[in-house]
């Protein structure tokens, strides 16, 4: 017996990141643009999806993967719009991972698909830490959550390509400084695109759709 020290230097998440790379290669080969949609519970992910699908389903073939701890609620909401949806129930896990996406992909065909939207588990922390193989991370913050959230939960704001500030129709009734959100978020992430939206009234949704359409079109095969 002898005491030894072994140098390793391996990424602890390597198994997940390897699967994320496989997922990404599949998306690229099929010409499917993939977004990972994240937010706290109740910020409006499914509402934004409903608006997005209604506007784009005639231009693009869209598939949705819904992640929730429990229930089929969200997949049913999406299927009602005539779009293919797969529900993942994490059974308690606070985020989706690349492995869960790989399994969900067995249930759909990506042939001819233009846009795959993964709606992550409602959580403002963990989903940002796990790569799924997506092209872009998109997050929502609703004005009812407060303008202090980017400072309290910076990671997701730092990693996202787009921030949608939702429920702006409620601004007269809540204390939330949208300019402060934007200022703080741009210090975390100078390249982020920010859109003010009300999924309820539809205000501002067009700007988001414009962004999404240009991204999907550039990926289409």
């Amino acid at each position: 017996m002898s005491d030894v020290s072994v140098t390793v230097v391996r990424n602890i998440l390597e198994a997940q990141e390897k699967i994320a790379k496989i997922n990404r290669a599949l998306f690229d080969s099929k010409g499917v643009f993939v977004i990972n949609l994240m937010s706290s519970p109740g910020a409006g992910k499914t509402s934004l999806l409903e608006r997005t699908i209604a506007a784009l389903k005639d231009c693009f073939r869209i598939i949705v993967i819904e992640g929730d701890i429990q229930s089929q609620e969200d997949a049913l909401r999406i299927k009602r719009l005539g779009v293919e949806a797969v529900q993942i129930n994490t059974g308690g896990a606070c985020h989706l991972d690349a492995n869960m996406i790989q399994s969900a992909l067995e249930q759909v065909s990506l042939d001819g698909c233009d846009l795959l939207i993964v709606e992550n588990v409602g959580n403002l922390v963990c989903p940002a830490e796990f790569e799924l193989g997506e092209h872009k991370k998109v997050m929502i913050l609703s004005v009812t959550e407060g303008d202090d959230k980017p400072l309290k939960y910076p990671l997701m704001f730092q990693k996202s390509s787009v921030l949608i500030i939702n429920k702006i129709d409620l601004l007269p009734y809540v204390t939330c400084n949208v300019d402060k959100i934007k200022r703080v978020v741009r210090e975390l992430n100078p390249q982020i695109d920010i859109f003010n939206v009300s999924c309820k009234t539809g205000e501002g949704v067009d700007k988001w759709l414009e962004w999404l359409k240009s991204q999907v079109s550039s990926f289409r095969k």
Binding site: M1, D3, V4, S5, V6, T7, V8, V9, R10
Partner: peptide, 11 residues
């Protein structure tokens, strides 16, 4: 998020 090294006994 890295495992950098291990220390232990060689069998």
């Amino acid at each position: 998020l890295l495992l950098v090294s291990l220390e232990g006994e060689k069998g």
